[in-house]
């Protein structure tokens, strides 16, 4: 069912594999609610969090996932442009490899880094976000959250809003959702949502109100204000005016629509407080599910079957 040694991206996964990861994650959710939140599935294995880009949330989510599976965990943070300190990315990895880990969880600012790592390491690689390319566990935890609330991924209208151009979350979600019978619409300022994305099998609608019409799922993306304002949109004021999710706008979507955000949120930029903390928001469910999905991924790529209590 799941025979891969690496999880580099969603793009090459089949629907059955995605379903299997989500089913496994469901079992892992149960582990996290036990009195003793630990199973011995990865006892004796070493997971290395290789974080070349800051990310507290993803790192601690993987950390907790590894620990609940009884793995040993090593956190490594390095800087991205590697040769500056005389050592390359490859050198760094080979140093850690010499200590015999089992699984690398890699976060890196450069697209393609996870694939590059998998090309020379003999250990398993889990991509925790590479540049603007993929963030597969984020898409999986989003899918798990949607499935819990909606029963199925099929038949849903999904709207993804914001900085699609720089978003690995958007790409992984598109790759995942297009395996199901979904209709995906992207919305945001034109420079951040190039029409070329239509070639991925999605629709593009720059009028957010229209894009939201009848949506079952609203995924908001983080706006990196310092980097984008002035070039990708004229000002934050304009961004808020046309693309901030307000309670009013949220009403355009289906009344049972879910609101997702990969975090960390920029309160008052892409989301108003009333929406972020509102009834339709499942942002904290996403965080909970993140640990379960990451447990499932670590477990499956180390060759696990679906029995956790032996």
């Amino acid at each position: 069912m799941f025979k891969r040694r690496h999880l580099i991206g969603i793009e090459d996964l089949k629907r059955e594999e995605i379903d299997h990861i989500l089913d496994t994650a469901d079992s892992m959710l149960e582990v996290s609610t036990r009195n003793v939140k630990k199973v011995p599935a990865l006892r004796g294995k070493t997971v290395v969090n290789l974080f070349f880009e800051n990310s507290t949330r993803t790192r601690i989510s993987f950390e907790l996932a590894a620990k609940r599976l009884s793995a040993d965990l090593l956190n490594f943070s390095g800087s991205s442009s590697s040769l500056s300190k005389g050592e390359t990315f490859r050198d760094t990895v080979q140093n850690i490899e010499a200590m015999h880990p089992d699984i690398f969880v890699i976060r890196h600012a450069a697209s393609g880094s996870a694939q590059y790592l998998s090309s020379f390491t003999k250990y398993s690689v889990v991509n925790a976000g590479d540049g603007a390319h993929e963030h597969p566990t984020q898409a999986l935890l989003d899918a798990l959250t949607i499935r819990q609330k909606k029963g199925s991924l099929d038949g849903l209208k999904v709207t993804i809003v914001g900085d699609v151009l720089h978003s690995r979350v958007a790409r992984s979600n598109i790759f995942l959702l297009r395996n199901y019978n979904t209709r995906i619409t992207l919305s945001g300022p034109v420079p951040l949502v190039p029409e070329e994305f239509k070639e991925l099998g999605v629709e593009v609608e720059y009028d957010l109100d229209k894009a939201l019409e009848g949506s079952d799922i609203v995924m908001m993306l983080r706006i990196q204000r310092e980097r984008l304002s002035g070039i990708f949109f004229p000002s934050l004021r304009e961004y808020r005016k046309y693309y901030q999710m307000t309670p009013e706008r949220m009403k355009r979507a289906d009344k049972n629509a879910l609101l997702l955000h990969p975090g960390p949120i920029n309160r008052g930029v892409e989301l108003m407080k009333e929406v972020a903390d509102g009834e339709q928001s499942v942002i904290l469910d996403q965080v909970t599910n993140g640990v379960a999905v990451r447990m499932a991924v670590l477990y499956l790529i180390s060759g696990g079957t679906n029995e956790l209590d032996h």
């Binding site: 991205s80 390359t88 990315f89 490859r90 600012a109 450069a110 697209s111 880094s113 590059y116």
Partner: peptide, 10 residues
């Protein structure tokens, strides 16, 4: 070779 073994962006 060291330079061309860096990540694509770098």
């Amino acid at each position: 070779q060291d330079e061309k073994e860096l990540e694509f962006d770098f």
